[in-house]
Nucleic acid binder design. Structure first.
Lengths: 407, 407
DNA sequence: ATAGTTTGTCCCGAAGTCAAACAAACAGCC
DNA sequence: GGCTGTTTGTTTGACTTCGGGACAAACTAT
């Protein structure tokens, strides 16, 4: 039951019905492939003639192709349809505070190359130069991959969706930076930019990368734990952005008003308890927030900490367990607030998931409002699945499959 | 950019375009009334012929009627169109722990009678009996109001949307109660049931009751402060319900892990700081949660407390100011999490809004992630606007104006 | 009275879905 | 090899809807 916005609505025109059904067909092929025209007609409860017209249109647009014929017990064999991901690629870029990662993927998010990385130049102009050069080389090295449909870029910061400007990225020291225009100019490709947490959530919704091939559709949350805590929220099949592009900033929801100081200036934010900095600070016994970049221990990561914990270091174990507990307590707030069908957790901490899952679930159950909510599915997303890069790829590929805006 | 759910989609049929445009016309008449066919055609950028056909259909269905002719400088005068709210009524019921309220309203939520109330019988069967009898009398006393389209009921508890069963209402001691079926059987009317916070949010979205006639469309949150804290969330024009019907339970998001005990069993929930109980407990200097119903001071309400504060009682002022501060701190969490365009606050505490607004805004600004977020619009909704009853009415009236489900 | 303007209706072409008919492809059986 | 029954995919005509232009109605100004 959605309200129609009386100042921003979309009337149905002659081609609207076709547009709607076209997108449904595209999505069904995507999620059921391989599938025949006849099966599509049955699934959609429309006549086979309608399906034929739509599918032939999609084939003409080279979005779908006819593959092998299928097997049936009796009668004429069906011709299978597939999403045409051949020779269409997407560049995925993940800009992080110290390093930038790059990958080539196909229309369905399947990686076509390994991940390459280079240090992040914090000067936006210089970064665009390097990025454009690297992307050019990457595409030149893989001519067999086909034409590039666009570049998806994720950044650790607030992004204004309408203009795709980076409003604020504290770890990069950026304010109101426009990467899109210069990068598009330098590469001649379309560029999409989004906050990394949101993009990760988007990728999970479209089930790009690994995981189940066709996930149950539902509201989901992606919690990305690194230097900060980024959260992406999908509700009713749509990304939440909010009035000021800060929707989903659960990292700065209070756990304890009197808690440790957070990088945002407040006290006791969730981020101040579970970020990698907080976990390491707990281990080293010093305050988490001591300037923009902590001196000393700089090269000691949460991964190293987890290795020590596995080696039997009691202090390391305690630090990780404490983080696990606060992770679970914060997840309880997220779940009480949004009640998603599934929460995905990304970040280095997932390396220790087997060690911490129990503590996370226990803490969650402690504060969740109902037992069912406490049992909400929580899935760790390993770094090897490259959730950020999948998110970047999704920025470019998802629009082709999105529902038309109507009413 | 919404994803199409591959296992629950709506294909476009022959009449889908018409259905879409019909709902748009209905909404435009509602929000721009009075308006002519020609203006509708201009607003929608469709031909006048299309508008004529749709409008004539709506007139035939008695959803719209032609009123007076308008004034123009030149040319033929337009005939104005109006939503036909005449002789169509809705019964709104607000079941609360101790009292139940009842009102008759028209299709647009305008109250047709005063609010009547009677003590709530906590036995569901007996309550349905009383409710049906009262509704029957109410309708019999107002035959001039026309036919009744249905009954909207709001309850302080979790409601399963699909079945409209009350899963859990702690203050009433209900678990898995079905009010809908027996009430529908007893009255012969359609019955809609919803959680009170959600219904309040729904009513604000449709701008029923007072306030601006056509509000800016946007994501909004309704925070209802009474014995507990109920929250309703509208995102992308739709009510958030979540996987287990608990979405929006910000009342049980932590403010401080070590905070006061909450009725839900956890510690330091927002509710434990700002509920009426918590405010009164602060004044009387005793723990907020001392059994299902506090002994003593039972008849002393937050309204009384506010009266004392206005009279100069320093302890009363301190108690209210403390609540104001925690209200603002919690709102910061809500705003950081959802970033709505507007937050509505209901409950007795709004009686003191002139006293507390400063403290609320200051606390909000303190923890809000950005200055813009800290400046998010916050509107008190006075009890005299009957937000719960407006919500109950909206349950019945809103579906007629909702966008068709498509794609 | 006449000209000009705006509203609301009518009519026909374009585009889409629906149901039914039809050709194509295939397995099994005589 | 030829016939039959079945399933797939295409085609065709009926029905619905939007789009644009023509037209009558209603009204003001001159």
């Amino acid at each position: 039951m959605r309200r129609i916005n009386p100042s921003r609505f979309a009337v149905a025109k002659r081609g609207t019905s076709r547009e709607i059904n076209r997108q449904i067909v595209l999505n069904l092929i995507r999620s059921h492939q391989p599938i025949s025209r006849a099966d599509l007609a049955r699934l959609m409860a429309v006549s086979r003639g309608t399906v034929t017209l739509i599918v032939n249109g999609l084939i003409a647009e080279k979005l779908v192709f006819e593959g092998a014929t299928g097997e049936t017990v009796r009668g004429r064999k069906p011709t299978f349809l597939y999403i045409d991901a051949r020779r269409r690629t997407v560049v995925a870029a993940d800009i992080r505070a110290s390093e930038t990662f790059l990958m080539l993927a196909d229309l369905l998010g399947k990686p076509l190359t390994g991940v390459i990385s280079f240090p992040t130049d914090r000067d936006p102009k210089a970064l665009v130069q390097v990025l454009a050069a690297r992307i050019g080389r990457l595409l030149a090295e893989h001519p067999e991959a086909g034409t590039c449909e666009g570049i998806g870029v994720v950044v650790p910061g607030m992004v204004e969706h309408a203009t795709m400007r980076v409003l604020h990225a504290p770890t990069l020291g950026w304010r109101n930076v426009d990467l899109r225009e210069p990068l598009a100019a330098a590469t001649g490709l379309r560029v999409q930019i989004e906050n990394s947490g949101r993009a990760c959530a988007l990728a999970q919704m479209w089930a790009l990368g690994g995981g189940a091939p066709v996930p149950s559709h539902g509201d989901l949350v992606f919690v990305s734990v690194s230097d900060g805590v980024g959260v992406g929220v999908i509700m009713n099949g749509e990304v939440l952005r909010g009035r000021h592009n800060i929707a989903g900033e659960f990292g700065h929801v209070a756990l304890s008003l009197e808690g440790p100081r957070c990088s945002c200036g407040s006290n006791g934010c969730w981020e101040a308890y579970i970020s990698n900095r907080a976990t390491l600070a707990r281990y080293f016994g010093r305050p988490a927030h001591t300037g923009p970049q902590d001196a000393g221990h700089r090269h000691f990561t949460v991964g190293d900490l987890i290795a020590r914990a596995r080696g039997g270091d009691a202090k390391a174990i305690a630090a990780i367990e404490a983080t696990a507990r606060y992770l679970g307590l914060g997840l309880a707030s997220v779940i009480n607030a949004l009640d998603p069908a599934c929460v995905y957790v990304g970040g280095e901490i997932t390396l220790a998931w087997d060690l911490i899952e129990g503590a996370v679930r226990a803490a969650l159950a402690e504060r969740a409002l109902t037992p069912a909510a406490g049992a909400t599915e929580i899935r760790p997303v390993a770094a090897t699945e490259h959730p950020r890069l999948q998110g970047a790829a999704a920025l470019v590929t998802a629009p082709a499959f999105a529902a038309p805006v109507v009413a």
